[in-house]
Design a protein around this nucleic acid. Structure first.
Lengths: 342, 342
DNA sequence: ACCATATCTGCAATCGTTTCCAGTAAAGGC
DNA sequence: GCCTTTACTGGAAACGATTGCAGATATGGT
C-alpha cells in the first residue's frame, strides 16, 4: 500500500493523541462534541480507513465468517451463498467462501485455515466426518451453524429442510391424483436428506395402505447421471410407474432426458414431480411441478441464528441442541396429472 | 477463543525466545536443525496455529483476496467463483466473496470494505462505474484483475471472452447450414459482451453479403424474460427467422418456453444456438448446441494472472494495459439443422 | 474562595507476530 | 593459542489499532 494513512497520522494532523483520535472516531461520546467533529472531518479529508487487522488483533474479532459448502452448482448452495453474503455484509461481516466438494479431508483443511483466520463464526454444510473439529470451534467460542445437512456426530445449531414432511406431501399429492405406482429417485442413504425423503415417501404410501415396493426406488448421488440411470431402471420395466418423484433437481435433468429419449410425454403419459425448485423448472414447457425446500428461507434463518449469537458474544446462552426446520411448499405447475389408464 | 496458544507459549515451553520460535517455525534454516525440529514438535503438541491477523499486521499482507461478482446465478460467475476459490486456496489465499448485483453503489461500498480488509488482490467483474477506485487500488500496490467485463474508464489487466469471434463463429455456422434469416437475442449495448456479440453477428452477415436487419435483433438484460420477449418479437412476425441465436444462457430459458408455447419443434422447424454452455443444455432433448465461452478457462487465467502478480509483490512490472481473450468453442449438439424450406 | 465532581485528554501497555541488531559460542586459519 | 569468520540465539522495536489509568481542566455546590 502506498497510502497507508494511519490513526497516528490523523491524530498528528489534529494535534491530539492517538487515543483521543481513536475515541473520537469510535463515537460513543467519549470525547467532546467539538473534537469528535473535527477528528471525523480530518479523517475523511485524509482518507483514513481503519486497519481491520490491527483492530482485530486487539479486539479479538475479525468480522469474518466462513461459509463452507460442497459446491455452487446445486441451487441450494448457490442461494445459501447469495443470501448469507448479503445478510452478513449488512451487519458488517465479510464472508470467506470455502468449497469442500463434500470431501472430509478438504473440509478439515478448510476448517484449520478458517481457525487461523480467527473467523468470528461459521456457516457450514458439513460432510459429517469432522464433527470433532466443529465442536472444538464451538467450544472455543466461535458460533457454528450447520445448514442443509446435519452432522450426526455432534450437537450443533442446525437449520434443515422439513424433508420428511415435504416428501410426504409430494407423494401424497401424487397419490391423490390417483397414482398407485410411484417411482422414487432419491439421494443416498448416507445423507440426511436421502433418508428423510425416502421416509416421507414411505409414510405416505403406508397411510394409503399401499405396499412399499423397493424396486420402485432408485438411490444415487445428486447428479444428472443418477436421474438417467434411475429412469432406465424404472421406465424400462414391464410395469413402469405412472408417476416419478425425483427428490433432487440435479437428477431431474437426467430424468427429463430419459423421458424425452423414450418419447414419453409429460404429463399425459407420465407425471413428474421434483424436489427443490430451480429457474429452469418454471420456464420449462410443460412447467415442472415441485416440492420446493425453500433455500432462501433456510439461508435467511441460518444467517439470522448465527448473527444473533455473533451479537451476544461468547457468553451467549448455548442450548445443547437446537434444530430448526423450514417447511417445504408444493408448487403445482403442469407436470402432474391423474394417470391416463387406471 | 478459549485456547489461544500463542507463539510465546510455544517459546516458553521450549525455553527459547519468541524470535527463535518464530524463525524455527518459519523454516528457511535460520535456526539449527535441532531447535527447528524441537520447536516444530512442541508447536504441534500444543496445537499452535499462527494468528493470521498479527502476522498480517506485521507483514502487511492478509493472504485475502476479494472476488467481486454480480451474482452467482449466471453460470460464468458461478464457475468463476468455484475455480478462483480453488486455485487461490491452493496457494494459501482465502477468498472473500462479494456480490454487487451489478449496482455501482454496492460495488463502491464493497471496494471500500475490501480495502479496509487490506486484501492482497482483487478479481472483479466491474460494473464500469468505479474505475477510479479500481485504479486507486492498483496504484496502491494491490493487483486488480478484471474478468468477463472490462471497465472502459481505466486500464487494468483484464480477462475477457473472445466474444466477437465467438458470435461470428456461431452465426457463420448457422449461415453455412443454409439459414438466411437469423434472429439474434443479445445483451444490452451498454455491456461489452452485448456490443461485441452483436458485432460478431454483423460481421458474419456482411461476409456472407447478407443485409443486416435490425428488426431481427432483440436486446435486453440477461434474464429469461428477455428471451421470452425476444421470441414473441421474432416468432410472431409474418416472416419469422429460421434460426435463433441466443447470446446468453439465461435468456435461453425464455426462448425455449416461447418456442414450446408455439409448438415450434427444435430443430425441425427452428434451429437454436445459444451462447455460454450450462448443464441443462447438454441434458435437454434435443440437446442444445452452443458457443461456449469457456468460463473455466477464463477463471483459470484470471486466477493465474493475479497469482503471478501476487507472488512478485508490489514491485511487479506493471504493464499499462494487458488484455487477455479466451477463445470460444462451438459445441454442436442437436438443435441446429438446415432450414426446412428454403 | 475551596473542594468535590464531571469531562475530557494523554500516556503507555497490549494484542501476536516478524525482523533488525547485537551478542555469544563454536569453528576454522595461521 | 589468538583472531576472524560463521552459526545461532535473545532482546527489543515495530505493525496499527484499543483501552485502563491517571492527570488536567472546567463545572458546580457551598
Amino acid at each position: 500500500m502506498i497510502n497507508p494513512v494511519t490513526l497516528r497520522d490523523v491524530a498528528r494532523a489534529a494535534n491530539v493523541a492517538v487515543s483521543t483520535a481513536s475515541r473520537a472516531l469510535a463515537g460513543g461520546g467519549l470525547t467532546s462534541r467539538g473534537t469528535e467533529a473535527r477528528l471525523r472531518r480530518i479523517a475523511t479529508e485524509l482518507g483514513y480507513r481503519p486497519n481491520t487487522m490491527a483492530r482485530g488483533l486487539k479486539t479479538r474479532s475479525s468480522r469474518l465468517v466462513g461459509l463452507v459448502v460442497h459446491n455452487l452448482t446445486n441451487a441450494s448452495f448457490r442461494v445459501l451463498a447469495e443470501v448469507v453474503q448479503k445478510r452478513l455484509r449488512a451487519e458488517g461481516y465479510q464472508v470467506i467462501l470455502c468449497i469442500t466438494a463434500d470431501d472430509p479431508e478438504q473440509e478439515a483443511e478448510t476448517m484449520a485455515t478458517l481457525m487461523d483466520q480467527r473467523v468470528d463464526g461459521l456457516i457450514i454444510c458439513p460432510t459429517g466426518h469432522n464433527g470433532a473439529l466443529l465442536a472444538a470451534l464451538e467450544r472455543g467460542g466461535t458460533p457454528v451453524t450447520c445448514v442443509i445437512r446435519r452432522d450426526e456426530t455432534v450437537e450443533l445449531e442446525t437449520v434443515l429442510a422439513a424433508d420428511p414432511e415435504g416428501a410426504y406431501a409430494g407423494t401424497r399429492y401424487l397419490l391423490e391424483l390417483g397414482h398407485r405406482r410411484i417411482g422414487l429417485i432419491v439421494g443416498r442413504k448416507e445423507t440426511t436428506s436421502g433418508r428423510e425423503r425416502l421416509s416421507g415417501y414411505r409414510r405416505a404410501l403406508e397411510e394409503a395402505s399401499l405396499p412399499f415396493d423397493p424396486t420402485l426406488v432408485h438411490a444415487g448421488r445428486y447428479e444428472p447421471e443418477t436421474g438417467l440411470a434411475g429412469s432406465c431402471q424404472l421406465l424400462d420395466r414391464p410395469d413402469p410407474p405412472t408417476a416419478l418423484f425425483v427428490a433432487n433437481h440435479e437428477s431431474a435433468l437426467g430424468v427429463l432426458r430419459g423421458l424425452a429419449e423414450r418419447n414419453i410425454l409429460i404429463p399425459d403419459q407420465m407425471s413428474l414431480l421434483c424436489y427443490e425448485d430451480m429457474p429452469g423448472f418454471e420456464w420449462q414447457r410443460p412447467a415442472i411441478s415441485v416440492v420446493d425446500s425453500d433455500a432462501v428461507a433456510m439461508a435467511e434463518l441460518a444467517a439470522d441464528r448465527l448473527l444473533r449469537r455473533l451479537r451476544n458474544g461468547a457468553d451467549a446462552p448455548v442450548r445443547p441442541s437446537s434444530e430448526y426446520r423450514i417447511g417445504a411448499r408444493l408448487i403445482q405447475r403442469q407436470s402432474c396429472q391423474p394417470p391416463s389408464r387406471a
